[in-house]
Amino acid sequence: MVPPDTPSAARSPRPSSVPSPPTTAAFPPRPSRGGPRVAADDLVSFTAQVFTAHGMPPERARPAAEALCYGDLTGHPSHGLANLTRIYLPALADGRIDPLAQPRTLADRGAAALVDARRAPGLWQAGAAVDSAVERARTHGVGLVSVRGATHFGCAGHHAARAAEHRMIGIVAANCGRQRIAPPPGGREPLLGTNPLSVAAPALPEHPFVLDMSTTAVPTGRVREAARAGRSVPAGWLADSAGAPVTDPAAFDRGQARLLWLGAGEAAGRGGAYKGFGLALAVEVLAALLPGAGTGPASGCADDPGARDDDIGFIAAAVAPDALREGFGADARALFSAVLSCPPTDAEAPVRYPGWHEAESARARRRDGVGVPLPAALHRELAAVADTAGIAAPPVLGDR
């Protein structure tokens, strides 16, 4: 996904062999029918004001707002402001997120550190952890910050891309704390969360490589987005307790369907499910066992009221290729140029790599007069939040 709004490192000139970026995304963002558009900066400023009104210091509120709005900016609204009233404001209200918490460093070995986030806002804390990993990598070639006691941090790709801005490779992965969402292949009870994983790296100018994925077939946000829109979901996203496909997304929150693992296809019991499940366990090891965070498997039965996404663990790592050898940047440009040059099966859909789509979407939506599209229901929801907080709602550019 596209890099966050942080100061950019110096960029190498575009080689003549690199294709010029198209004026539109190769794969347009999922449409959001009806509703207004809001300027990207206005949306971030509004969200920062909301967080400040709920006790978050301004120096945390702004990066937290950028992290949350990133989903809407890059065409992934399931991970954007739709979660403001569903996840973040309730967690701030009931103390599950402490806006003033001071993370504590429990161990510091130079290249690596262990941090207890102490329920600090994850939208801010994850970026701070990546920045710390980047600084460590400047000295040691690699930097790793292992975090426990964390809270929701939005799109992992937003945070991993911070390292790419410094010509480094960024790795961010998180478990879901004690929350259990998907059962293991052949199992009847949920065991692990969606356990997202992101890897970001410099690629082509203003178009970093950013892989950002859940280890389940889709994240829960995509399911809930479909439910809100009244759409069915494809077979292969959800299954019932017997493993039969479910296409009604509302069945998930009714407890009548579980997410399938990446690679499962349409049947929960297929061997391909072990790919996603294995990746989820790998994330659990790196993101939760390493720092000593909460884990789903160790939390009892699925009906345990304590089985929430508390005590999330995550890993933030940065690798500085230039500390190891010369030429990484040129080789990266050559690699990703070759990807773009691959002959497509459909001339109307050229080949792109992960992160290209998001960079194009963000660039288009930052353009004057274009703005970020918001579903009408979400805009009404934000207006109500603004009224409660005593601040102005984000101004509308115009209906689509």
Rank of each mutant, 00 (worst) to 15 (best):
A239K: 05
G271H: 10
E59D: 15
T6K: 14
P22A: 13
R162K: 08
H166M: 11
G154I: 01
A229K: 07
L281E: 06
A280L: 14
A389E: 06
M1S: 09
A330N: 05
F314M: 13
A160W: 13
T151L: 00
S20G: 09
T220H: 06
C155L: 15
A160I: 15
G55N: 05
A53M: 02
A376K: 10
G122Q: 05
P395W: 12
A9S: 11
T105W: 11
L43M: 09
A25E: 05
H159P: 03
P19E: 14
G154T: 02
G329H: 08
G329D: 11
H379Q: 10
A217L: 06
P99W: 07
F51R: 00
G230V: 02
G95C: 14
V283D: 08
C69V: 13
T220G: 06
I171N: 09
G221Q: 02
A126E: 07
A302L: 07
R109L: 05
A163G: 04
A112D: 02
L340V: 11
P29S: 07
F328T: 05
L81F: 03
P19I: 06
T139G: 03
M56K: 09
R224K: 13
G265W: 01
P29M: 05
S78E: 11
G157Q: 14
A302S: 15
G149S: 06
D253P: 00
I97R: 05
S214A: 15
G265V: 02
C69I: 10
R104W: 00
A126C: 14
A320E: 07
G296L: 04
A53T: 07
V145K: 03
P291W: 12
R178K: 11
A268R: 07
A201D: 01
A239Y: 01
A323W: 01
R231T: 07
P57S: 01
G265M: 00
A173N: 12
G127C: 12
A377Y: 09
G170P: 10
L204E: 08
F51G: 08
E348Q: 10
F153V: 03
I312S: 05
P305H: 03
G243A: 03
A111N: 00
A9H: 14
C342S: 13
M1Q: 13
A316I: 04
P21G: 13
A101S: 09
A133D: 08
V44I: 12
F209C: 14
G141T: 00
A91M: 07
R37P: 05
A53I: 00
R60D: 07
D331L: 12
Q179N: 15
P305S: 06
F209P: 09
L73W: 11
W237M: 00
G75W: 04
A362T: 05
V18A: 08
D41N: 09
Y274Q: 15
A330R: 15
A200C: 01
P344M: 12
C69S: 11
S45H: 08
P344A: 15
A323M: 02
H54K: 04
P205F: 04
N175L: 09
G95T: 04
N83F: 01
R33H: 14
F209E: 10
G355D: 11
R254I: 04
A173F: 13
H79N: 13
